[in-house]
Every structure is written in structure tokens, then in C-alpha cells.
Design a protein around this nucleic acid. Structure first.
Lengths: 201, 201
DNA sequence: ACGGAATGTTAGTGTACACTAACATCACCC
DNA sequence: GGGTGATGTTAGTGTACACTAACATTCCGT
């Protein structure tokens, strides 16, 4: 068997796949092994336990600090452009990890793991807060409460993401792109101070 | 036993409670019955099946058209006031149903039920869209795309709700009230047209 | 007081599942 | 070729669980 992926990886990937679909308790080790094209025994030999398999899988495929890079190198200090970049990156990352997010939303037995996962949004929220504060210092946004603004922005995107998570391919009349444009226009309109308003766009 | 609640109701309530905590498959019928202070047999006699118990429970305690009433009677056609009313009502309703929402988010085996539950947000979105359109007709908001605006507003609140759903009592630096104020200020600032801007507030 | 309905009790059935033990293969490296 | 490590195969163990059967008890209306 000259696959490029190792048994270990294939097991973790199929585990996430199936668990996203049917829940942690809804899928059996036998099922996972079969779907991965592997004997159930190698599953146990590799991971010892069903729970450890999931933990490993989450640890392996959890997205890392991609956001930091964006914030430290790609910002243009034009509100509209930056927000667009940020949301695009956010939804991109989240969609790449959609199955993982599903598993973690679903699994009650992993509250500790879920806590760990919530560090990421918190980190993004801090980056955003700092961004709004700097933009305010530059006189480019009227910052009333940067932290709450950052939170609002995050939650808006989070809500949109979660909504699209379940009805996999949307029934909403509003396309994703339409939402992005409208929401960002909304933030730009709300945050741009009067004096900047004419020259903008 | 002269309880005011019937066995049936108590069973449904405890079922939702426990399932919200541990997931549908994570809780056993024996556990539910014990927590309800009832023999396991009455559970089966009343509902026949574990799944039917959950279905009944969801059907029983699913919030109904409270929103419609708000939209048809309580609107003041002042953007800030109305949005505030709407968000408060939304979060109020959702919090009253938080366990139910948790169960439905968690259970993979109930995708049909989840679909049904997504009619409610869709209905709210329609009400909101109509509201924005009417406000635009009255010259009180600059409506670019009412539907997308409504969606954005909904998703923002949905995201905030879901975030608070798990870490039951928040660790965020931003309080709920702070979020409400900021988010509504944001929408008001963004949507209020120029000519209305001075006299507003 | 009587009858019937709801509820409790106990014992049990079948099954699915996580996980183990023991042995057989296969692949690869020296 | 022989040894080593990963993998497959098969059989099995213990347990938890949804659900049933049969009988006992309590509650309540009349």
C-alpha cells in the first residue's frame, strides 16, 4: 500500500469526518476503522482509546496563528480593505476547519477541549481591538469602545459561519458575498468619522 | 404525590436538561427517569421511545410566534428604539430556550428537527427585512439591501448568543449590555441617512 | 368500597460497542 | 534470508443500554 497518507493521518481525518456527521458517540471505532480502510486494531494500537483519537485529531488539525500573520504584515490601514481581508481570512480558515468546529460544537464530553478552542476567537478579538484602537489613533475611525466593536464584528461573522454550517449549502436568499459586502459597508459607514467621509471610497 | 407538574412534563423537561448537558446519546433513559423521580417504565409507557420523548419535548417547548406580536404592535419607527426592543426580545427568547437550542445543535440524529427549527430565524429575518424596507420608505434608513442588512443583524445576534451558550457565564471582557448598546449604535450610525443625522438622538 | 388507570418493581433479552489477547502476514532493511 | 515492526484476523470479554414482560401497588373517581 503506497499511499501518501499514513494510516494514522487517515484515521484522524475519517474520525473527524464521521464525528462531524454523526457525533462522537454516534460513530463507532469499527466504523471509523472501516471508513479509513484499516483494521480496528490499528486504531487502538495507534491511539489507545477512542477519545485519545479525537484529541489527537483535534490537536493535529487545529488551525494555528494564521491570523497573526495577516495582522502583522497585510494591513493597509484602509478600513474597508482591512475589514474585507480579515473577514475573508476568517471565513476561509473557519471553512477549512468546518468539520472540526462541528465536532466540537456537538461533543458535550469535551468541554475542556472546547474551552481550549475558544482561545482562538479570543485571540482574534484582541487583534481586532488593537486594530480599531490604532485606527482611532490615526483618526480613521471614531472609536467609542474598540473592544465591544471588535466583539460585535467577530460575533457577526461567527453567527454567519454557524448558520451556514448546518444547512451545508444555504437556502438563504442572501449570498455569502452579499453578506460580506453589506456587513463591511455597515461597519465602514458606522465607524468612519465625518471628516473622512467624503474622501473615502 | 401532589405535584403541580405531571410526570409527562417532568420527563420532558429533565430530558431536555440532561441532553443539553450531555448530548442525546450521552444520557440514558434510566438516567432521565431517575432525574425526573420516576420509574423508567413510565418513560417508555408515556413516550414509547427515547427518540419520541425528545421529539415530544421539542414540540412542546419550542417557542412560537412571539416575535410577530412585537413586530405588529410594539414598533415605534425610531430605529434605535426598535432595534433595541428587537434584540432584547430575541436574546430573551433564545435564552429561555437555550437548553433546547443546545440539544438541537448537538444532536446529529435530528437533522429534520433542526431544519424545522431554522424556520424561526428565517421568519425573523423576513420580519426584519420588511421593517427595514418600511423604514427606508419613511426616509429613516438608507436601505441599500434590506435583506442583507436584516441577515447581518440577525447573524450578529446569533453569533453573540451562541458564544455565550457554552461558557455559560462568560469570560469575555465585553458585557452583554455593552454589546447590545455598541451593536445597535453601530447599526444606527450606519443606516441613518445624512439629513436625519443631526436631529437623531 | 370497588374498579380501573397510572405507576412502580424486578427480572430479563438482545444488541452494540469499546477494548483485549493471541496469532498470522506482510513489508522493509541489513 | 532473517529479524523487526507495523498491520491484519479472529475470537472474545464485559458492560451499558434501549426496550419488554409480568406482576404488584397506589391513586382517584364514583
Amino acid at each position: 500500500m503506497t499511499e501518501s497518507t499514513t494510516n494514522r493521518d487517515r484515521l484522524m481525518l475519517t474520525a473527524i469526518d464521521l464525528m462531524a456527521e454523526k457525533g462522537y458517540q454516534g460513530v463507532s471505532t469499527k466504523e471509523i476503522a472501516a471508513a479509513a480502510g484499516v483494521s480496528e486494531m490499528t486504531l487502538f494500537r495507534q491511539f489507545g482509546t477512542k477519545l485519545q483519537l479525537l484529541e489527537q485529531a483535534i490537536g493535529c488539525f487545529h488551525y494555528a496563528g494564521e491570523m497573526e500573520k495577516l495582522f502583522s504584515t497585510r494591513l493597509t490601514w484602509s478600513l474597508r480593505e482591512d475589514l474585507l481581508q480579515i473577514t475573508r481570512a476568517y471565513h476561509d480558515i473557519m471553512n477549512r476547519n468546518r468539520k472540526l468546529v462541528l465536532v466540537m460544537l456537538r461533543s458535550a464530553e469535551l468541554s475542556d477541549l472546547r474551552d481550549r478552542a475558544q482561545d482562538h476567537p479570543r485571540q482574534l478579538q484582541q487583534l481586532l481591538t488593537a486594530y480599531f484602537q490604532e485606527m482611532h489613533r490615526q483618526g480613521k475611525v471614531k472609536a467609542i469602545d474598540s473592544e465591544a466593536q471588535a466583539m460585535t464584528f467577530m460575533w457577526m461573522n461567527y453567527g454567519a459561519f454557524i448558520s451556514r454550517l448546518h444547512n451545508a449549502d444555504l437556502i438563504t436568499a442572501v449570498s455569502h458575498e452579499q453578506f460580506l459586502q453589506t456587513s463591511i459597508e455597515l461597519f465602514v459607514d458606522a465607524l468612519t468619522p465625518m471628516n473622512e467621509r467624503i474622501t473615502d471610497r
